[in-house]
């Protein structure tokens, strides 16, 4: 009888010292699908990672991550701003440029949203999301040209408001959407010569990957008279992630390994550390910056 009850309610004795086998992707997917994902109120969560890499002396990357939430009777407003900038080596003050870009862009955007987020009554800005992004980039361009002439930086900035992700992008840092089923979609377009030739069908992707000029940019913040950032709006991947990174990550870690780094842990912060570690393990030829964002609920 005792045995019968033990069978029903008792715990099997676990032999000690045996680690739990990591869940397979399939198993994780099944769990994610079965989990009641309801999180109230809907909110953003973000993790970051950064490393100078194994071969550079100086970190010329800059990143910024702001995550906020306003929720109450008047509704729920997840608001986030995420920026990665990669100052250009070979130019003077690459790190000055990337730092300036991140601060000025973020400062401009947050000033524009301040009356909407923190004033009473709330005043929505008159400009559209894309106009605000565009102004912030132009302001950064002017400042960099004035403060650090000759320098340049990439900039990939994502403004999240509700479900809309508005992206401003120049250079070859990248933004991806990562779907739970393993699909990783590049949503920005590298402003690199090789990439341009690839887009136009003049190079295959394998030719591009080994092309001697693959690091040459034709557009960067701080460079040139006319600045034409790519500005566009997409819907936040849900379920899924938004990933922003510099070429120190995407240039050395392939999408499959990025996906594995993200899904083998449940914490966004840990996932970012994993990605940085993967880039360093692959030689860490360049500075590495990464931001991973999730919209929950």
């Amino acid at each position: 009888m005792f045995n019968y009850f033990r069978q029903l309610f008792g715990k099997q004795d676990q032999p000690e010292g045996i680690a739990t086998a990591p869940l397979s992707d399939q198993a994780i997917r099944t769990i994610i699908e079965q989990q009641p994902q309801r999180i109230e109120p809907a909110q953003l969560a973000a993790g970051c990672g950064q490393s100078v890499g194994k071969q550079r002396e100086l970190n010329e990357d800059s990143l910024l991550s702001v995550t906020s939430l306003l929720s109450g009777n008047s509704g729920t407003l997840p608001f986030g701003l995420y920026v990665v900038a990669d100052g250009m080596g070979g130019h003077q003050f690459g790190e000055v440029a990337s730092n300036a870009a991140v601060r000025i862009v973020a400062g401009h955007i947050l000033r524009k949203f301040h009356p909407y987020l923190f004033n009473l009554p709330a005043q929505p800005p008159e400009e559209s999301l894309q106009e605000i992004m565009s102004e912030s980039v132009n302001e950064a361009q002017k400042t960099i040209q004035r403060e650090a002439p000759g320098s340049g930086t990439t900039l990939t900035a994502a403004l999240v408001l509700g479900q809309q992700v508005t992206i401003a992008h120049i250079g070859d840092s990248r933004a991806y959407t990562v779907n739970p089923d393993g699909r990783i979609e590049l949503i920005t377009r590298d402003h690199s010569l090789v990439r341009r030739l690839e887009e136009l069908g003049q190079l295959t992707s394998s030719e591009a990957a080994s092309h001697p000029q693959r690091n040459v940019l034709y557009r960067a913040l701080g460079q040139g008279d006319v600045l034409e950032p790519d500005i566009f709006t997409v819907t936040f991947p849900q379920p899924g992630y938004l990933l922003l990174c510099s070429d120190g990550l995407w240039g050395v870690v392939n999408e499959q390994n990025l996906y594995r780094s993200i899904t083998e842990t449940s914490s966004l912060q840990r996932a970012c550390q994993n990605m940085v570690a993967a880039a360093n393990a692959a030689g860490g030829p360049d500075n590495i910056s990464v931001i991973l964002v999730q919209l929950l609920g």
Partner: peptide
């Protein structure tokens, strides 16, 4: 002309 990392290309 082969460009250099980080320099603007003169195409």
């Amino acid at each position: 002309q082969t460009g250099q990392k980080g320099t603007m290309i003169g195409t």
